[in-house]
Simulated assay, not measured.
Amino acid sequence: MLKNLVIIGLVTLFTSGCATGLNSQQSAEYNSMEARGLAVQEKNPTTGALLGILPGGGSFYAREPAFGVLNLLFWPLSIFWDPVSGYDGATRINYNFSKAQIDKEKRAAETKLSRDYQDGFITETQRARGMRDIEDKYTY
């Protein structure tokens, strides 16, 4: 019975011990955000990887407390996967934070442009040109 619990625990830990990184599409989007200067760094992936050497540190840093506790329990074995978990988790946080920030800034720019048009400060042509410029700026 104890042997089965240990096996189940190890299988669970090894299959879910690492934070999920970005898929290929998200990775391409995030690289594009970085290249265009739109990415925001909420967490440092290198710090997440370094903290992964500590018991559960990478997972806690990546806002995965349940995995942090599991990695804490399985330390020192967890130093094989928790640095990856911390790095991937921080990158995922940065991707999500950047995406939300870009959407927020885009909506604010569009709202300002629409208000300027409604208040008569700009023409329809200027509004259309402004909307294209906003789309170009915030597309990644």
Rank of each mutant, 00 (worst) to 15 (best):
L2F: 13
I79F: 14
D82L: 01
M33I: 00
I79D: 11
L2R: 08
Y95D: 02
S16R: 10
Q25E: 15
I7A: 12
G21C: 06
G68C: 04
S98H: 05
I8S: 14
T20M: 10
L22N: 02
T15R: 09
S98W: 02
S27T: 11
G89S: 13
S78P: 12
M1T: 00
P76M: 03
S59W: 02
I8Y: 10
F97P: 04
L22I: 03
Y30L: 08
D88N: 15
L5W: 11
L5F: 07
G17C: 02
E64C: 05
Q101R: 13
T15G: 04
L5D: 09
Y87S: 00
P65F: 02
F97W: 06
L38K: 09
V40W: 02
L2P: 09
Q101M: 08
N71L: 06
T46N: 13
I93Y: 07
L2V: 09
I102W: 12
G68P: 01
R92S: 14
A66T: 14
P76D: 13
A66K: 11
W75R: 07
L38P: 06
S78R: 14
L38E: 09
L50M: 12
P45N: 00
K104Y: 03
F67S: 11
S27L: 07
S78N: 06
L70Y: 12
A39I: 01
Q25F: 15
N96Y: 12
